[in-house]
Simulated assay, not measured.
Amino acid sequence: MQSELFVATRDMGGLAIQLCYYRGFGEFKATGFVTGTGQLLKLMNGVSCLGGRTQISRVLAHAVRETRAKPVKAVVFIGDCCEEPVDELCHTAGELGMLRTPVFMFHEGEDAHARAVFQQVSKLSGGAYAPFDRNSPQVLKDLMAAVAVYASGGARALRDFSRRNSPEVKRLTRQIR
């Protein structure tokens, strides 16, 4: 999947990805930006899971800081639940929207509260929401490729990409302003 993100955007100037994750008791990490599949795969393989509360607010606040330093074209969040105050998340999502940094919220599972929060965050930021489940890795792959195309080529490139792609990518594309 990582290879295809970079291949999908090669003709549009490429893609730089920063991996952010949280885990355990208050641990939050952000890597440098990488531009190659091998680099990203090495970073991702170095991450292990630990139980703990969600820290979505830290991800969004980090995106604000990064965007203020150098514009970030898109943020992707993949998660299954939300255990944080909704108003704080929505406030930061609105700030990202004002900075023109859309957040794409990809929701694994059926948690109704998470769905509602993720939909609000994506809408306030100018991004999009899409559900998936662990039995449909192709859906997540298609959605990630769509965001990569958007980040590299904008809304027009995403519309062109969605014409020849899955129904999930088409739904994602319709949410973009």
Rank of each mutant, 00 (worst) to 15 (best):
M1R: 09
Q2H: 12
E4F: 11
F6G: 03
F6A: 05
V7A: 15
T9R: 06
R10C: 06
D11F: 10
D11L: 12
G13L: 08
L15D: 07
L19W: 09
L19I: 14
C20M: 15
Y21C: 07
Y22S: 14
Y22H: 13
R23I: 07
G24H: 06
G26Y: 04
K29Q: 13
K29V: 15
T31L: 04
T31Y: 00
V34F: 03
G38M: 11
K42L: 15
M44S: 11
M44T: 10
S48D: 13
S48L: 13
S48C: 10
S48E: 14
C49P: 00
G51M: 12
T54Q: 05
Q55L: 15
S57P: 01
R58L: 11
V59T: 13
L60Q: 00
R65I: 12
T67D: 13
R68H: 04
R68D: 10
A69C: 06
K70P: 00
K70A: 15
P71M: 09
V72I: 14
K73Y: 10
K73F: 08
V76G: 04
I78Y: 00
I78L: 08
D80E: 13
C82M: 08
C82R: 02
E83H: 08
P85H: 06
P85E: 14
V86W: 07
E88N: 12
L89N: 03
G94D: 01
E95P: 04
E95S: 03
M98R: 15
M98Y: 09
M98C: 12
M98D: 13
L99Q: 09
V103E: 06
M105T: 11
F106A: 01
H107V: 11
H107W: 07
H107E: 08
E108F: 09
G109I: 07
D111S: 09
H113S: 08
H113R: 13
R115N: 07
A116I: 10
V117E: 08
V117S: 10
F118K: 10
Q119F: 03
Q119A: 12
Q120A: 13
V121E: 03
S122W: 05
S125K: 08
G126I: 03
G127V: 03
A130C: 11
A130M: 05
D133P: 00
S136H: 14
P137V: 09
P137F: 09
Q138V: 10
L140S: 01
K141A: 13
K141S: 14
D142T: 07
L143D: 00
A151V: 03
S152P: 06
G153M: 08
R156I: 13
F161H: 02
S162F: 01
N165E: 10
N165V: 05
N165W: 03
S166C: 11
P167Q: 11
P167I: 03
E168T: 07
K170L: 10
K170Y: 01
L172Y: 05
Q175Y: 01
Q175D: 05
Q175A: 01
I176H: 00
